[in-house]
Simulated scan of single mutants.
Amino acid sequence: MRTRRGAAGAVLLVLVFLLAFAGPLVSPWGWDETDFTAFHQEPSARHWLGTTQSGRDVFALTLRGARRSLAIGLLAAVLSTGVAAVIGTAAGFAGGALDRALMWGADLLLVLPPFLVVALLAPGGAWPMLVPVLAAFMWMLTAKVVRAMTRSLREREYVLAARFLGVSGPRVIVRHVSPRLASLLAVDASLTVGVAIIAEGGLSYLGLGVRPPDVSLGTLVAEGHGAAATWPAGAAAGLLVLIVLAVNLLGDGLRDVLDPLRDGR
């Protein structure tokens, strides 16, 4: 809250969460309900954002899609950052053959076209399985940064002293290395949420991610694309932009606060 961008992002993200999770409590329609008297109707008092061609309430569907996209983005970001932290610290602290093997694997994944590979591996319809597939192609660059920082930290006096005293490597990493990486990992996780949500939206738009009868923001944009009216896709697209903007502002604010080099300190 010490920066305007961070405060704006945090407030905006809280409002989005409240809308996504508390909005269904005031909605007169469920996301899986069909109004057989209103097919592709404009926004009205009965249907606040109108209905789709199949008679489903756009407001309820948009909130359902927001919950699904937020869940996928948050879980993929946490998993990706966790993998980057484990692999980066292990490679940087151990060095040698383990370092070369882990970084070779990261370089190999960086060469592959991520969207194409994810599209081939994405299990359409099973959104929990989509989380590890997305996370598998978002950890490499962060792992390289973590490795470089760990190589620097392992030469610090307090780390050398702990190793000379016989403290095991994993314990040194947990007690002396990981706390110094916390700010980097927090910023990376917040920014990765937006990347994961966009990736999921793109896959779902192409029919390779979440599939009917379930919905996400990407499937709603795809359903409304090319329709005579723009409100079904416009509501989902606007909320998607709002979520990505919020997490990016929050990530920028965290970086400004947690990175002392940005203030010249």
Rank of each mutant, 00 (worst) to 15 (best):
G88S: 02
G88T: 00
T89L: 07
T89Y: 02
T89M: 12
A91Q: 01
G92T: 01
G92F: 00
G92E: 00
F93N: 04
F93A: 08
F93P: 00
A94T: 15
A94C: 08
A94Q: 05
G95E: 03
G95R: 00
G95F: 01
G95S: 07
G96P: 03
G96E: 06
A97M: 05
A97H: 03
A97F: 11
A97D: 01
L98K: 05
L98H: 07
D99Y: 04
D99M: 03
D99G: 06
D99C: 02
R100H: 08
A101V: 13
A101H: 04
A101G: 07
L102N: 04
M103E: 08
M103G: 04
W104F: 14
W104P: 03
G105H: 03
G105S: 15
A106C: 13
L108M: 13
L108H: 09
L108F: 12
L109M: 10
L110R: 11
V111M: 09
L112Y: 08
L112R: 08
P113S: 06
P114Y: 09
P114M: 10
F115W: 11
F115R: 10
V118A: 12
A119K: 06
L120Y: 12
L120G: 14
L120P: 07
L121A: 15
L121I: 14
L121M: 14
L121P: 13
L121G: 15
A122W: 11
